[in-house]
Design a protein around this nucleic acid. Structure first.
Length: 310
DNA sequence: AAATCAGACAACCGCATTCCG
DNA sequence: TCGGAATGCGGTTGTCTGATT
């Protein structure tokens, strides 16, 4: 049985929204809030489908939307994030307050992507070809709906392809059972994951250590399984400086010969205690970590852009 | 002045994922 | 647990506008 359309198409307006339609939608959402998009047109008195209302609201009418004039800083950030994430426009937009995925996508397609392509054509032998461009190319060659990521590219695939439900939360002793559940899920997918309920005397606050033994999978797989987009990416702020911190930690060794990545998270059981509001990742196999592609990320996103500039 | 072209971007479409009864 | 509905996402299309011929 085919899926029913989100709304009947007969008699609906299409194309550009009028000012009065915008007003009706805005006023409706002010009163009733977002969501239940299917019902919005009927209740707001609009001759539009729910999807169209949602899109109009999210991309145009929503408060706080910045429009046009993408700054140099924003552009550089878009390029950096695109290197990391590929065409995950919504994720990229999430790092640019007030910008929408649609706007960034359009901006990329009409400005940055085109310039990159032009640059590539005039400089095809240059070794400055970057993952984002390679990705763009692969997409162009492959018209399939979903992007195909070259495993050898430097793109970080932020959605879990193997186990996307392993969420590591700030830990308290009473949460340990929960952690073991996560461990079992992760172990099935990644290789082996060891969860230790640390002696409170050894480690402050009864934190648990999660040790990931990444088997033949490289660290980018490891990153996937940690929902990088939700947690790790949250600390990859615009200057990405903390990645250097990771590298330093690997080179110098963290506490007890392990490598520690501290990832602030939005909320936790003790949100008022900054120290408990951390995800701690320990990787004992420093060499594996060091040899992995992950470290190239720092150099990748910190790479120069003069080749690209006007 | 009219026709054509290209760039920009809003909107649409189809599919995937998530939610929920 | 399952299936349908709702939502989210990325690719594509349509349309407007300004530049060029």
């Amino acid at each position: 049985m085919g899926r029913s359309p989100c709304c009947a198409k007969e008699g609906l307006n299409r194309g550009a929204w009028t000012a009065s339609e915008d007003k009706m939608l805005t006023e409706y959402i002010k009163v009733h809030g977002e969501g239940k998009w299917r019902n919005v047109p009927k209740r707001a008195g609009l001759k539009r489908c729910g999807k169209s209302c949602r899109l109009r609201w999210l991309n145009y009418l929503r408060p706080g939307i910045k429009r046009g004039n993408i700054s140099r800083d924003e552009e550089e950030l878009i390029i950096r994030l695109h290197k990391l994430l590929g065409n995950r426009w919504s994720l990229i937009a999430g790092r640019l307050p007030g910008r929408t995925d649609n706007e960034i996508k359009n901006y990329w397609n009409t400005n940055i992507g085109k310039r990159l392509q032009d640059h590539h054509q005039t400089n095809s032998s240059s070794n400055t070809r970057r993952a984002s461009y390679q990705y763009q190319e692969s997409v162009e060659k492959s018209p399939s709906k979903r992007p195909k990521i070259d495993k050898d590219s430097n793109l970080i695939w932020t959605k879990a392809s193997k186990c996307n439900k392993v969420v590591i939360s700030p830990l308290e002793p009473q949460n340990f059972d929960q952690v073991v559940d996560s461990k079992q899920q992760a172990a099935a997918a990644v290789g082996s994951v060891v969860v230790k309920n640390n002696n409170k005397d050894d480690v402050k606050g009864g934190e648990a250590l999660l040790e990931f033994n990444i088997q033949e999978n490289n660290l980018s797989d490891f990153m996937m399984d940690l929902q990088m987009d939700e947690h790790l990416l949250s600390f990859l702020n615009s200057d990405f400086s903390q990645l250097s911190y990771l590298e330093n930690n690997i080179n110098n060794g963290g506490p007890s010969g392990t490598t520690t990545i501290n990832c602030p998270v939005d909320k936790g059981p003790s949100a008022d205690d900054p120290e408990s509001n951390q995800i701690l990742l320990f990787c004992e196999d420093k060499k594996k970590l060091h040899d992995s592609d992950f470290l190239t990320m720092d150099s990748l996103i910190g790479s120069e852009f003069e080749w690209f500039q006007d």
